[in-house]
Design a protein around this nucleic acid. Sequence first.
DNA 1: CAACCATACGGAACCGTGTTCCGGTTAGCA
DNA 2: TGCTAACCGGAACACGGTTCCGTATGGTTG
Lengths: 195, 195
Amino acid sequence: MTEIGSGPASSARRKRADARRNEETLLEAAAAAFVASGVDAPVRDIAAKAGVGVATIYRHFPTRADLVVAVYRHQVEACVEAGPALLASGDSAHGALARWIDLFVDFLVTKHGLAEALQSDDATFATLHDYFLDRLVPVCAELLDAAVRAGEIRPDIEALELMRGVGNLCIGADRDPRYDARRMVEVLLAGLRLR
Amino acid sequence: MTEIGSGPASSARRKRADARRNEETLLEAAAAAFVASGVDAPVRDIAAKAGVGVATIYRHFPTRADLVVAVYRHQVEACVEAGPALLASGDSAHGALARWIDLFVDFLVTKHGLAEALQSDDATFATLHDYFLDRLVPVCAELLDAAVRAGEIRPDIEALELMRGVGNLCIGADRDPRYDARRMVEVLLAGLRLR
DNA sequence: CAACCATACGGAACCGTGTTCCGGTTAGCA
DNA sequence: TGCTAACCGGAACACGGTTCCGTATGGTTG
């Protein structure tokens, strides 16, 4: 734990320059591949696009989940930070919750296959699932609690449950223009309200 | 179209006895495998369990969807027939819809991986998806229409959309005891009601 | 009852994907 | 400049779906 902590040599040991370069390149290639072919784009494709061998991917990102998390971390964190901000915005608690869920849904439906991956029982995606839940459930719980305390929604739904339900509703949101995930989520949220 | 139509030699051409036997055996083996390992149990496993070669599966059921449909056809048809019965049962239209959806959800959550397969974009499952939608959407539409006419629910939701939403909510219903698909579906249905 | 052949069979082979292994290369340092 | 730990690329392996082909057999006909 004793660290000099100056500059890039902060933690553990500074990586070699080529390693850092490759990691960066891989992140870009992966982001591009995810947009083009969804989050389960073939490993070989990503490696080829980055101009590296497949083993290099596994060295930097042991599981696909690590790669996905690395690519989307910024956006997830943005979502995390938006929660308290919305609560403080003076809107009704239910309104804040609805707007926050909207952000989450927007994020999910614009990433091909991400919603599917989130709910997949594939062990490769387990840590992805965990990361999303770890980060987002507490935020959701806060918004949910506020709405319950305000007497606006039924009190028997857990944040985890709601997040999974919303995530599930987003599956296949692209692919079929007849299915509008946003509308279904809206209905679900309406179902939460006390009447 | 000219048929003698007597006994088992009704349509096209009577299959060989061993072929019929194998088909039967395969259906049983597949049903067992689906229970044990979900609807994407490895083809080789099913073949082994039935004591046949893999090609025999492909001859009888060209795609996995055909096999799944064959295994669950009875239950799907039961669901189809339950729709009108519930409508006629004197319950409120929304109540009938809710009870019918319950049947559907019960069916889905007890079949490992079926809900996932239904929403999968995997081409292998396309005809499965189509079969379910072809059979169930009309029934759902009838129930939905009745509830709309009775002024009990909002009129802007299509049967297809509702079915997909419900199907999506059932994904992963086994696997995680913290997620209760039935409850989420209940919330969704509540969200349909006019207030 | 015997011979024939369309039908059906089993398993090997093939293909695409994820994952691991190994011999060669190189960044960083003395 | 030379050394070495870290890193790299691609071949090799594992696994599951799918296809192919030589063989066996149910059913029919003479």
